[in-house]
Structure formats: C-alpha cells, structure tokens
Design a protein around this nucleic acid. Structure first.
Lengths: 345, 345
DNA sequence: GTTAGCACTCTCATTCAACGAGTGCTAATT
DNA sequence: AATTAGCACTCGTTGAATGAGAGTGCTAAC
C-alpha cells in the first residue's frame, strides 16, 4: 500500500494524537496541532480516503477518526521514527541490569521489573532455567545399584542435583574415580568455555568409564543450558488498569484470566522473531483476550543462540516508538550483560 | 450489647438479605420475605433503634438499611447459624485434599485452589516449606576443609542440600563413616517419628564425631520442619472482580496492589487465632486497602503444633456462614490428611 | 487541487419531571 | 403500651428533552 507524503503525514499525526489522548482525532485538531499547512477540509478529504483504505475508523458518524489495526501496522512499519532513549532511562536500565548480578534468575527478575516500570505496560519475560556460575565441585553418589546422584556446587553457592542411570555393575569406587577426575579438571572452569582439549583430556583418563562419563558431561552441560521448560515471568500486570480502554472490569477480567496461564504467555512470547523487535498489533495476536492489545517482543542471546524473549503488553493504542526502543535497548543490554558475565567468569 | 429476640431476627434478616442481594433492605421486604408477623411500620421502628445502636446504616435518607461493620460483627458472633456443607462440596474437598498427595507443597497448592473455587472468594494460604517424605539416603561430602555438603534424598524423590561447617580436621573418611551409619539407621524411617532410642543408638556408634553428628541431625530435622520463612499462596484473586463492590477499577487496583505483597498476606494470615475460625470484618483489618473486605482464617496443625493458616478474603458483604463452614472443614481435612500421611509413612 | 461555508449527524452533559422505594411521624387501633 | 395504618416527605433512579460541541461530508467558489 503506497501512500503519498501528505497522507502519510496525516496518518502519522492521527496515530500519534490518538496514542496520546485516547480520543478520536478530528481534522481541525490535526491542522492546528501538526502544521501541515492545509486546511481542515483538505485533511477531511484525505481522511475519508484513508478510511476507505482501511487505515482509519470512525467510532460513529461525525466523530473524529481513530487508527484501525491496519493503520497502526502501517504506522509501525513505515511511519514511526526511532526515538532515542533519554539518559535517565538508560541509566535506570544499566543500574538494574548489570553483570554483578550473579544468577540468571535474578537478572531476569530484575529485567521483568524494570521493563514494566519504565514502560508502564505489562512485561512478559521468557527465560531458560540456567545457571551462570562455574563448577566448584562435582560428586557422584551411589543411591542404589544402577542409580547415581550427581551433585554439583557452583561458585555462586547454588547446588544442583540430578539422578543418573548407570550400569548395574558400577561401584562406589568407580563413581569416586570419576568424581575426582572431574573435580580436578573442571574445578573453577566456566562451563560455557569447555573446549575439546579439556574434554578429551578427561576422557583419556577415564577410558573404562567412558559411557557414564559422557552422560555426566552431558548432564553437566544440560544443567547449565536447560532444565525443563523455560520459565515465565510477569511484571506490572496492574499497569493495565491505568489504561482507559480497561476501565471496563469485564475486559480486565478476560485479560487477567489469560495472563494467569503460563502457557499463554509462553506462546505469546515464542511468537517473536529471532532477530529484531517484533510487534503484534491487535488481532494479529492469536489469543482472543489480547486482541485489543499489542505485544512488542524481542529475543536476547548468548553466544549467538537465542536464550529467551522479553516483551511488553499494552493496549493497541500504545507508545510504539518508545516501547520498541525500550524493548530493543533492554534486550541489547541483557545480551551484552550475559556475554560479559560469561567472559568474566 | 443485648438485643431482644425481635431485633435479633430483624438484624439477621437484613444481614442475610443484603448479603444475598447487595441492595439496601427495606422494612417492606423484610416483613414480606421473612415472616416476622409484624407490619413494616413496626420493623421500621426497630430498624431506627438498630441504626441508633450502630448496627445498621442508611446509604442516604430514605433508602433501605445496610449492615454496618458492627452489624456484621454482631451477626457473626451471635446470630449466624452454622451451616452444614452439602455432600458435593465435601466430596470435592476430599477429592482434592487426600493423603495420596505426596508432598506438602502440592497439598497446599491444591488447598489454595480448592478454597477459592468452592468459596468464589480469594484464598490465602500460609505454609511452612517442609518435606513430608522419609529419608532414602543421606550423604556428607567434603567441599573444602571445614565445609561439608549434606545431601538428602527423600522417598518422594526430593533432593535437599545443605552446607555445614565442620571442624577443620575432619576428613572424607570421617564424613563417610557418619554417612554410612546414618544411612543404615535412618533409611526408610519417618523423621517425624524419630525417638530417643534410635538417636542414642546412633550417637553411641559415633562417639568421636558427636559434635558434627548432632549438627547433622539438627539439620535433618530442620529440613523437614522449616527452611526459612513460611511461603504464601494466593488463589482466585480474580474472584474479587465478580463482586459488585469492586466494579470500580480504582478499588480493584488498590486491593491488588496489596495482594501483590507477600508480606501483607503473611501479616493478614498471622493475625489468625490459634484455635477455631477467626473472622476479621472490614476495618478490623489492619491494612487500609482491605478495610472494605472481610477475612476468614483458621490454622491447620500437625502433632498439635500450628503448621500454617488458610483464609478467604471477600467483601464485607460475605457469605459468612458458608465461608466459615468451608474454612473450618478445610482446615480439619488438612490437619487430618497431614496426620494420616505421617502415620502412613 | 484546495478551501470556505454550511447543513447535518451524533455524542455528551444537563435539565426536568415522573416514579418508586422507603422512611419517619402521627394518630388510630388493639 | 405496643402495634399498625396512613400519609407526607426525601432522595436516588430513569427516561425524555434539550442544547452545546465536535466533527463530518458536500457543494461551490477560489
């Protein structure tokens, strides 16, 4: 859909004004507030065109216009200008999200809180349950024949446990041997930096226990990378109540009933594109209850691999430029912080 | 405050009617719906008296009456009759809360959910973080001189870890010895049933390690009894939105902002009396945001010791008899279920 | 192509009256 | 002395009428 320059300007003005005021925008307002150097009458004609194209809507005859979902989409795709975050916001983000936070869990909680606070929308975050520390100790224990318990202590003091199937014949001595070799080789090492060298070294020392060993190594890695499903974080749900479109309690209820379900949030977030910021406007969302809302998402990464997603949820009448900028900046900060943490260790 | 029989009847009728309809109750309604065999005029006189005593209020001149907080209090203390729960409700409770649920955590979650479901109010539950299982394995590991890790596996598959200070001189061999003795003696035993006999037996076998041993035993016990602060559970928060008194979004917001804070819920619940059902009506509650609400609480126990508290929160215009009955029955069921579980093990 | 002018539409807030539910008081009744 | 019928009065609610205001769409002029 190609629009001439003036139509673009008018559409942008209407979207901006409506986002700001939540009131239908009239031709007069536009020609007064945004200096388009044309009379209201001209703007009216253009608005009629834009409505015909499906970019604008009229709540009722002879009210002002409001953007349709398509209108928002056009605005987000072609009209919206990138805003620069002011330094205050940046410093809040940097103050809250920094590499001194030791565990991923905490980092994510902080992110969730920060995101909802600075956007004034509801924040959604998806994160793997992953530990960031390095190994301080590994110990394999025989629980019963064929079953071993692997205990890992990280330098952050976290203790992780896993139960492992082992060959029936394995004795306590075998496990102790594996434990001691692993301890010597892996102690104080960052699991994200293990390389072929270290690993083959270990394998050569434990030829006999090779099979169990590889399972244990997999296990150690898996503890750091993922344990079960990604966890969902929700912040600032009450911010929704500040939006005039949610002064009706039944809408609030419908939305909250959705947000109560972790699956829903998970699905919403997994809808994000791998790169860049994704904006889902109104009925572009799959769930009925959030089709009066927009969701802005982006992923954060570690070693080029997508770790999780952050997002904000607000009314379709959302401060897109601002929210997009924040989501973008926050994922970048998060990605950078994670990278720094891994390197620091 | 002593009331004559007729006044009591009238007060009870007004409270009941208002709880049901949420509309101010008039003299006519009472004489029609509740057969008091007196005319509206008489009832009017009585109502004027009751208002003077502070038990009733008039929203505005010549509207009907509604109960004041004091009126509810009188109703709850003297007028309300115990209702018997119908079998359907009982069987739902018994279906959800039973001794086959292995872990306390799960039992409590189920309780929270059930409570909000059958009352249609918001449920609040306070529970210790305590494990119900018996020990399958105990192992002490040397992390570094002076520090040991205690790993406990319960029969429910839960794994618990604690770090323990030990004398510097303690060797791996010492710890292994303690581990093996504990394992032999405590395996498959229910920690809630340990008696002097078993313990002194263990102590006699480990004279040398006595000091560490007693720490370990304390530790084992403490894992089962408490680890840090009691945990707060919240269920059916959205039920609040069904109440006509919360059709105003600002009230909803104020309340939700309170319920977001675990401390608040903890305080509200810790306000419960140790025995029986406690009802806090309106401004009897300490927090301003819930002074338009009532909270009904009761404690559940294990071995005569209070373990935690359950409660429901609703508008002051609450189905007191029903809610009290449910809270009472649910704590009894919970207490009985816990007892049964301990015995069964 | 743009704009001024104007009639028209629709919402919103206000006013007003009628209504109804309910009270409080008085006087009559039991 | 307690109860009740009767009645005037109060106050919120409802619905209709009204006018103001915002904004449109169309036409004709620029």
């Amino acid at each position: 859909m190609e629009l001439d320059i003036r139509k673009k300007k008018i559409l942008a003005a209407i979207v901006r004004d409506f986002i700001e005021t939540a009131e239908p925008v009239g031709s007069r307002t536009i020609s007064r507030k945004y200096d388009l150097k044309v009379s209201p009458a001209t703007i009216r004609n253009e608005m009629a065109d834009l409505e015909e194209m499906g970019l604008l809507e009229q709540p009722y005859t002879s009210a002002g216009r409001i953007p349709s979902n398509l209108g928002y989409r056009y605005y987000v795709d072609y009209l919206m200008e990138k805003v620069a975050l002011n330094n205050e916001v940046k410093s809040i983000i940097h103050g809250n999200i920094h590499s001194k936070i030791r565990e991923l869990e905490e980092l994510i909680q902080e992110t969730t809180k920060t995101l909802s606070q600075i956007t004034n929308y509801t924040s959604l975050v998806l994160a793997p349950q992953m530990s960031m520390g390095m190994i301080q100790m590994v110990q394999l224990l025989l629980i019963e024949p064929g079953k071993a318990l692997v205990v890992i202590i990280t330098d952050t003091g976290q203790i992780e446990n896993r139960i492992l199937d082992i060959p029936e014949g394995f004795t306590k001595a075998d496990l102790d041997l594996i434990s001691s070799v692993l301890n010597v080789r892996l102690k104080k090492s960052n699991i994200h930096k293990w390389d072929k060298c270290i690993l083959s070294d270990i394998y050569s020392q434990l030829v006999k226990q090779q099979k169990v060993l590889s399972t244990v190594i997999d296990l150690l890695t898996s503890i750091y990378w993922e344990e079960g499903e990604d966890k969902v974080y929700l912040g600032g749900a009450l911010n929704i109540l500040n939006q005039p479109e949610f002064k009706d309690i039944t809408k609030v209820k419908r939305l909250f009933q959705l947000l109560e379900k972790e699956d829903v949030i998970r699905n919403v977030l997994q809808d994000a594109e791998e790169d860049g910021v994704t904006v889902r406007i109104g009925d572009e969302n799959k769930y009925e209850g959030i089709q009066e809302c927009s969701v802005i998402t982006a992923t954060y990464k570690l070693d080029g691999k997508v770790l999780g997603t952050i997002g904000v949820l607000g009314p379709t009448r959302m401060q897109y430029p601002h929210a997009v900028a924040i989501v973008e900046f926050l994922t970048q900060t998060l990605t950078a912080t994670l990278k720094k943490k891994i390197e620091d260790i």
